[in-house]
Amino acid sequence: MEPFLNIQHVQKTFSLSGSNLEVLRDIDLDIPEGSFYSIVGASGCGKSTLLRIMAGLESATEGSVRLRGREVKEPTLEIGMIFQESRLFPWLSVRENIRFGIFKTSPEDRQQIDEHIKLVGLTGFETALPGQLSGGMQQRVSIARALVNRPDVLLLDEPFGSLDAFTRINMQQEILKIWEQEKTTIVLVTHDIDEAVFLADHIVLMSRRPGTIKKIVKSDMAHPRKRSSYEYTRLRNEIYQEFFAEFKTDIEYSI
């Protein structure tokens, strides 16, 4: 069978004022349809760059990203992306922001938009401006905007990074619900190891400078996951240790 989302030997070098900076080296990933991948790694290891290449916003220096065998060279409606900042247009209402996500607007959009407003739990806020919403609500709108085209793949770059702990856990449950409901393939970049363990079925650990894939940890824990379960803590410890070894930091890890 043809691979769904396939990253082959991706390498990325930025040239910064004459000198070259190798950010990604030899990235190979095979992401099956409907899976939930999470990419974790230290700041600056190239996670965002990798995601941007997958979205077609940036081109790889070498190698390629393919979706169902077709090379992704520029953005496509089949791949949606969400950033740390909601990037909503402050002059458009919630409804208009979501409508902006629709490629070819038509009179039947209304129902589609309403469905997505409901999906992210913002019914009643249709006419609000982004400035009148909390950070978490803004991010929900941006998720709705990305989903309204029904993309096959949703890329999320630290989408909850700027939210407080309560809102973040709330949003994690929300994204899980969406994933189960919409069957969208998700790739989530995060700093937060706990977030990755809670959500993903594959956790990609990246090393830095240049960023390479150090390890892919598989997790077949059923949802909803209990943060206190044995399996959960074992997996989290495994990942922490992976990074401790690299940084040679000597922190005692306890539950």
Partner: peptide
């Protein structure tokens, strides 16, 4: 760009309002 908007839409819906 991600949402594949054409130049005219970008001008009308983003650049001018901004």
């Amino acid at each position: 760009r991600l949402l594949k908007k054409d130049r005219f839409t970008i001008l009308r819906r983003i650049i001018f309002p901004a």
